[in-house]
Design a protein around this nucleic acid. Structure first.
Lengths: 343, 343
DNA sequence: CTGTTAGCGCGTTCAC
DNA sequence: GTGAACGCGCTAACAG
């Protein structure tokens, strides 16, 4: 039962611990024969090195950390898969960590950096607005992916990079499109969040588009979901509330595809046809949007581009080839079946 | 940027390291005043204890590990949330780890157990079939949730617990139901997997139900998706292939809800109405099933029951109140809109 | 209540 | 090519 350690292996092989260490870590200066003997014993005994002890000593642990906000959200899955591949290609290990609602992502990162000796950190989701003070403690390169820099104060912009779409612009693009289809009474499903965030930016885009086209912003058409913008339930219930409120609208813009799925269902239940009676649009361009009935008109975030550039930037930063940047990629308006020109 | 350590804090406060340690770990035997002084300095300096070092020493780390197979799969999300709550209630920490396709979950568990000094391990997804030898190395309680014990050899059944539905039975239940609606030509979307697995059990259930009702098993109606049963794309493409094959069927049973979503879309694209022309059924009872159009008939796995019993069992095992068990919960057949009596 | 000290398991010098 | 010894940062046991 007692835990088996490197010492134990060394004893059984009649060698010193450092030799075992060399065998495990693929060092070159070791006799192939002894290495084989050691590896055999390791396999027999089922010995597993203790990671805590390794991390404590190892100075050159090539490891990058990815902190994901919201486990509920399938949106990041394709990005994570790409990041995993690239990380491995570069010979780095990856530590993936979900950040709970009650946790501060930078605190978690700080802790992880010490524990795993991270060489770089990627934040997926969450906010890039953090105290410059704390950010500075993170003394490895940091990149926020899918979160723009508009969200933070200018002071700390050179403390990290961002790779994202321009959420305000993309949101505006979608509302412009709906307006171009003849819609004037456009409702929106969003989250009550006055903090700088992608949510806020998307709402801003909606308001700005309406204003630009001299359409009055009708507060009864702005509906706030309860807390989470990535649950169908919230999309369903908030849409139901919108319908029940008696407000008249010909289009409904949901700031996430997941919300839109709930909206589609709620409209259908109310006997409202999409897109004949009401046009519905989402945001994100998740896989799901291609499989709803009707298919969802949405803004597709270029996740592959974002992921690629994130990794390129991160490794450049690690190798000190260049400084921090703030990159913006254009989203793509996917015109699908859920929106239609108004009669 | 030299890392700041506990020693440094001790120096700055003019106390010993153990006093700092006591302050950090909320020990009772410490002067509140000195504790406050220490905590202040810690806050100022932004000191963060190194987890690796802690894990290395700490003997009583109350920590449980959850290993999740397949990050793509939103199915486990509600379970994870529940497990998190319960773990915290009991004063335990939680380590959540996703297991990649190329990894062996028991190996990962072994590693994690050493690193984090786990007191218990929960596997979500994957297989419970592992060499008894390896399982024995895991010398803390192990529970497989949502995976039945039928999958493993009898020898090692007392080495771990399982909490799940009976996948074969539930699958049979669904096919029985479809037959009761008058369907005889029932196609199935599954995965080519001869290994013992939930996938295999669900296919077995399908075959057994047909046999029981003296319906011939038509191999052209058994369609295998490519690798993953939790992607809509696979559901879509495999259904398309089924349609294109010209095979006649009046019902389509998908062994996951996610596959069924793809199937719904493919049928719709082919001009086949659900449920008028073809009935569609899923399996799992995920949130998504309530939001498709039409709503999906499915087998709802009692995730709350499974989660509750998993946690109860785990803590009982940790406290050595009882031995390993293999619990089966009944699934619930949700009759929704995607299935219909045949004319 | 507090300081000193001995390891936790391993990687890394530095001798040999 | 190999082993002995040191210390990573911390907690726990033991004195005081």
């Amino acid at each position: 039962m007692s835990e088996i350690t490197i010492k134990e292996i060394a004893n059984r092989c009649g060698v010193g611990v450092s030799t075992v260490s060399r065998a495990i870590n693929d060092h070159s200066d070791i006799n192939p024969a002894t290495k084989k003997r050691i590896m055999d014993v390791i396999r027999e005994t089922g010995y597993i090195p203790n990671n805590s002890a390794r991390n404590l000593k190892r100075i050159d642990a090539k490891c990058i950390g990815v902190l994901v906000r919201g486990i509920t959200n399938p949106f990041f899955t394709p990005m994570i898969e790409f990041i995993e591949q690239e990380t491995e290609k570069k010979g780095y290990a990856l530590v993936l960590r979900h950040v709970e609602a009650y946790e501060n992502e930078v605190d978690v990162a700080l802790e992880l950096e010490k524990e795993k000796r991270l060489r770089g950190i990627i934040f997926l989701g969450g906010s890039s607005k953090h105290s410059a003070e704390k950010m500075k403690q993170l003394n490895v390169p940091v990149i926020f992916a899918t979160i723009g820099s508009d969200i933070s104060d200018n002071l700390s912009k050179n403390a990290y990079s961002t790779v994202s779409v321009d959420d305000e612009l993309e949101s505006r693009k979608m509302v412009d499109y709906l307006i171009s289809l003849g819609h004037k009474k456009i409702a929106i499903l969003t989250e009550a969040n006055e903090e700088p965030s992608v949510v806020k930016l998307r709402l801003d885009g909606y308001i700005n588009a309406l204003k630009f086209h001299d359409i009055e912003v009708d507060k009864s058409l702005i509906k706030y979901v309860d807390k989470r913008i990535y649950t169908m339930k919230n999309g369903y219930e908030t849409t139901k509330a919108l319908i029940d409120s008696g407000a008249k609208f010909t289009a409904l813009f949901c700031i996430s595809d997941v919300l839109a799925v709930g909206a589609l269902r709620a409209l259908s239940d109310a006997g409202i046809r999409v897109p004949e009676d009401v046009s519905v649009a989402g945001f994100d361009g998740q896989e799901l949007a291609e499989y709803t009935i009707p298919r969802l008109t949405t803004i597709k975030q270029p996740l592959l581009d974002i992921s690629e550039e994130t990794m390129r930037l991160l490794f450049d930063l690690i190798e000190e080839k260049r400084g921090h940047k703030h990159l913006i990629f254009p989203g793509e308006l996917i015109e699908a079946e859920s929106t239609k020109k108004i009669n």
